[in-house]
Amino acid sequence: MGAVHDDVHHAPDGRGRALRLGIGGPVGSGKTALTAALCRALGGSLRLGVVTNDIYTTEDADFLRRAGVLDPERILAVETGCCPHTAIRDDIAANVDAVETLEERFGPLDLVIVESGGDNLTATFSRGLVDRQIFVLDVSGGDKVPRKGGPGVTSADLLVVNKTDLAPMVGADLGVMDRDAAAVRQGKPVLFTSVRTEGAAEVAAWVTEQVHEWSHEHEHGHDHGHGHDHGHPVHA
């Protein structure tokens, strides 16, 4: 290993590696279902890897493996020692290690999804770990959640409001959620889905756009004397 760059374990300097996408949100909002749906939708066009951080460690990884959406070897589980937010925000070492393990083992990859363990509204990913992040809410948490804001809702690159099919049953007003989210998110996108019943085509389209944007940003004219080639994304 040479000592050319800041971190020979290729820290997130963005050069030539996969886009790292964080998926966070409260317990039960549908992060794992969304991850599975994204793997299903994107598996044919992008080279994928997944890191899960479920508090019961292998549970989410097992769900994904059973779902058959991705080669099980491309799914790694990270234990978070009872503190899911620590592992994605304050001490990201184990997650970065897992992402790089996937890239070393299966690379070049286009997209690595890091799914956080279920946490609270203040949990967001460190920019040292992911390049983009999705925050997943569901309507059963009440339509006031977007108004309450919190870093997850306000700062995520994409807010997904899931389980819209349940809205009538839990008395959630999607219009209110849309309006409140728009107010606190300053123009950043919000998508309403029911991943379980409809899949995640819109979210997948957004992710594909991010991957293309990322590869264009880092493929052309950004060589920085980088010695080795991590490969280039396949364009869908």
């Binding site: 234990e79 020692g81 503190c83 592992a87 304050d90 001490d91 070492a93």
Partner: peptide, 11 residues
């Protein structure tokens, strides 16, 4: 213990 070197997840 806040050094971000992954120790928080080892018991």
């Amino acid at each position: 213990s806040r050094l971000p070197a992954g120790s928080h997840a080892h018991s």
